[in-house]
C-alpha cells in the first residue's frame, strides 16, 4: 500500500482527494436534499398546475372551472385567501401546514406535500 502511494504523482493524489470529497459530500448532500421543507401543489381538475415551496411567501391567482381562487403562502402555511364560489368552505378552512384545501365548485385542490424530513406516511383523524 505504502509503495503504491509512493508511486503516485501529485495529480493522482489530487484526483483521489477530489473523489473522496465528492463521495463524502454525496452522503451529506443527499441527506440535506431529503430533508427539504414541504411543497404546496395546486391542482385544477386533478392536474397539478403549480408546485410551490411552503417556505416562500407568495400570493397566487389560480383559474378554476367556474372562477378563480387566490392561494396565499405565508410563514410556512397556506390558505385559500379568496375564491369565486358560493359556500367559501375552502376560505373558511383557514391556514394549513399539512393536508389539503379543496374548492369543489372550482375543482381547485391545494395540497401540502410533507417535507421528506417527516417519517409519517399518512394521518388518521
Amino acid at each position: 500500500m505504502k509503495k503504491a502511494i509512493k508511486n503516485t504523482t501529485l495529480a493522482d493524489r489530487a484526483l483521489f482527494l477530489i473523489l473522496l470529497i465528492i463521495s463524502a459530500a454525496g452522503f451529506f448532500y443527499s441527506g440535506e436534499a431529503l430533508s427539504l421543507g414541504s411543497e404546496v401543489v395546486v391542482e385544477v381538475k386533478g392536474r397539478p398546475v403549480y408546485t410551490l415551496s411552503l417556505d416562500v411567501d407568495m400570493e397566487l391567482e389560480v383559474e378554476g372551472s367556474h372562477g378563480h381562487g387566490v392561494v396565499e403562502i405565508k410563514k410556512h402555511k397556506v390558505r385559500m385567501k379568496d375564491a369565486q364560489c358560493d359556500n367559501h368552505i375552502c376560505v373558511r378552512q383557514g391556514w394549513i401546514s399539512r393536508g389539503a384545501i379543496v374548492c369543489l365548485p372550482n375543482d381547485i385542490v391545494v395540497i401540502v406535500e410533507p417535507g421528506r424530513k417527516t417519517d409519517i406516511d399518512a394521518i388518521t383523524g
Binding site: 399539512r98 409519517i120 406516511d121 399518512a122 394521518i123 388518521t124 383523524g125
Partner: peptide
Amino acid sequence: WTIGIKNPRQTGEKDE
C-alpha cells in the same frame, strides 16, 4: 407504513 394519529385537542403545529 407509519401512520400519525391526530391529537384531538391540538393547540399548534407541534402537537398535531
